[in-house]
Nucleic acid binder design. Structure first.
Lengths: 226, 226
DNA sequence: TCGCAGATTGAACAAGTGTTTAGTCTATGA
DNA sequence: TCATAGACTAAACACTTGTTCAATCTGCGA
């Protein structure tokens, strides 16, 4: 369900070209002239529509991340999430630019990236709470930290997708590397760890518990943030 | 154990300044003039020593990643790894530039980043094999994919450290966000998942096994890479 | 002491950058 | 019909970029 063809307003065409180039080359490396050339317009028109290169970036941020955030908020339940994944697996190239752009936004420092990450964590937290009540997810003391860990692990595929697919030899036509083959190959190992754990017993966990409990008083670390 | 003071050769001072700026601002945004100014020399001298800006990047890659790779290869056993972590927790700011630089290298496309990631995966694979024999790590069918998942999860702290500490409120003076407080707060939740799992039972795992086994024949995916 | 190779600099160059500006084209409403 | 607003362009501007170059400075071996 995307505006696919060339029947877009010029402003939208420029913005989409910028999303592709900003994601692929980064904001600094991507030039206004390249964006204009990709969109088939003159450099001046880019400035005319967006005020400045920074304004163009803001428009891209708002478009990609607002869209993804609302999608995420609407489809917070596991069923819709599964449908979203299925939709992606059927049309992977439709989302390529968005994925690359989000990865770049999370890498560079930006308020849009911060907001997106926080939204993912919040959504994960909601899922964990619901799963704990439903009995599908184990009970955790520190749900917030657990959600941060899970979100971080999930987003690592987004951040390192190129490396993952390169190492596993599942590199498809997608520049970010996150293709159906990669997901198919990682799903079972990840779910095994999430189901039966990674370690054979609680040795490491107990040792860490003890170390942290004894260290908190003697350590040189600063006080806890309020 | 770092060459701390100003008793460095000019070439090394330029390289260290570049490591800091390339990591913080990225290769494109960081200018030769800024590197020269930080090192207290003229822009021409930077070129004189490294041939070009790209040559300077190569030197930085080789310095940071070769150093880290050898460290990783020497300290592959869990005991030394723990000592390395302890060493970091005691002197976090000494490693700040290296951490930021490695994160940037993994984000941008570069052979050095590829080699580093592969080294981490290989090291993780060795640890898993050893742990499986020693009985501390569960038995996995697909050790390579499991190692990729574990490595990806571990590196996510590196890639998203700024977001993690920002969300959890453990932001210290480090620009990358990976401070002692963050690690202390994430250790137990991560180890709990790695020990007892995340899901309450094998429902999701079994469902995924079934879905993948039935899909592999009917799916439109291409053949497996050799 | 001399000479020379390398370190180092300041200024300049050429290319590329974001942005501005003057002007043309086009549609739309009075 | 015509005036006006906005889309749009080509050219230029001001600035930054990486790099070069001629010229000094410095240390060291003969």
């Amino acid at each position: 369900m995307r505006s696919s063809a060339e029947d877009l307003t010029t402003r939208a065409r420029i913005r989409d070209a910028a999303i592709g180039l900003f994601g692929r080359d980064g904001f600094a490396r991507a030039t206004v002239r390249a964006v204009a050339s990709t969109a088939g317009v003159s450099p001046g028109l880019v400035i005319h529509h967006f005020g400045s290169k920074a304004g163009l970036r803001d428009a891209c941020d708002q478009h990609v991340l607002a869209q993804t955030a609302t999608q995420g908020r609407e489809k917070a339940d596991p069923v819709s999430t599964r449908q979203l994944i299925q939709d992606y697996l059927n049309h992977p190239d439709q989302y390529a630019d968005e994925i690359t752009y989000i990865r770049r936004t999370l890498s560079d420092e930006s308020e849009a990236g911060d907001a997106f990450f926080d939204a993912v964590v919040k959504q994960t937290q909601d899922i964990i709470h619901a799963g704990m009540e439903a009995g599908t997810i184990r009970k955790f003391d520190d749900v917030r930290s657990t959600a941060v860990v899970i979100a971080s692990n999930s987003l690592s595929i987004l951040m390192l997708g190129r490396h993952l697919s390169r190492t596993l030899g599942t590199l498809g036509p997608e520049p970010h590397g996150i293709g159906p083959e990669l997901l198919r190959q990682l799903t079972l190992p990840a779910l095994e760890i999430y189901t039966h754990g990674f370690y054979a017993d609680a040795r490491f966990l107990d040792a860490a518990r003890e170390a942290i409990n004894t260290n908190t008083s003697t350590n040189t670390g600063r006080e806890h943030a309020p």
